[in-house]
């Protein structure tokens, strides 16, 4: 179920973790290594969140998306031109294994619904909402808050266009529900999502996940 990478010439596991511990400290790295984080949607937000968390040494990532890599994704999402046409779950897991060979990545190539979200997300300590569509975002957030109230949820809203980077922020809406973004910039007209601003928002989400794992949280 949790596949470990089989790659070529890579550092040994012990060296890998010793290096992470040297960067984060042993205690913090253990918290990261023991964590399971689910990422719902593997587009501009989700693929960038996944890369940040994999690099930080988060132990298990649950990657969920029903879609395939499209050429129109490549301007902001962590896929490669040769991966166009692949399932995003498989393509991202492949890329993450190259980045973090000892991370464990579980993939579900399926659409998340009100009916299946409990089953898909039950193993996660923290869930990232990383959908594109506003109504789907609301469905997932309501579903998690109602059915999985014990989970931490890190959602995002408002990161389109070329607005100021500093307008992207993180807000603790409820005890276990954080919202990242400027909450207003939506995709409309010709100016859609710009890689850097989507990455800023994804970085807010990934950073919030790491802060929750570390036990340092805003009031």
């Amino acid at each position: 179920m949790w596949e470990v990478a089989e790659l070529g010439n890579i550092p040994e596991k012990e060296v890998w973790y010793r290096t992470l511990e040297a960067r984060h400290g042993k205690e913090l790295q253990e918290k990261f290594s023991e964590a399971t984080v689910a990422i719902c949607g593997l587009g501009g937000l989700g693929s960038n969140i996944a890369v940040a968390l994999a690099r930080a040494g988060v132990g298990k990532l649950i990657l969920i998306d029903f879609d395939r890599v499209d050429i129109s994704n490549l301007h902001r999402q962590q896929y490669k031109a040769v991966q166009v046409g692949q399932c995003k779950t498989e393509a991202l897991a492949e890329n993450l294994r190259e980045i973090s060979p000892y991370g464990l990545f579980q993939t579900y190539t399926t659409k998340i619904t009100e009916e299946n979200l409990q089953e898909l997300l039950k193993e996660a300590d923290i869930i990232c909402e990383a959908f594109d569509d506003a109504e789907e975002k609301a469905m997932l957030v309501n579903g998690i808050l109602e059915k999985l109230p014990e989970k931490y949820l890190v959602s995002a809203s408002g990161m389109a266009g070329l607005g100021p980077a500093n307008d992207i922020r993180t807000r603790r809406v409820m005890k276990r529900f954080y919202l990242c973004g400027d909450e207003v910039s939506e995709v409309r007209g010709e100016l859609g999502l710009i890689s850097s601003r989507v990455m800023l928002c994804a970085a807010h989400q990934a950073h919030t996940v790491l802060r929750i794992l570390a036990g340092v949280q805003e009031e």
Partner: peptide, 28 residues
């Protein structure tokens, strides 16, 4: 606490309540 969608019609707002409506916009 979250107000489940199914309870919007039966949830009566009372003096002193603090309510927050989070409205999502598209993009991700």
């Amino acid at each position: 606490d979250v107000v489940p969608k199914a309870q919007y019609e039966t949830t009566v707002l009372e003096d002193g309540d603090t309510v927050e409506v989070v409205s999502f916009v598209g993009g991700g």
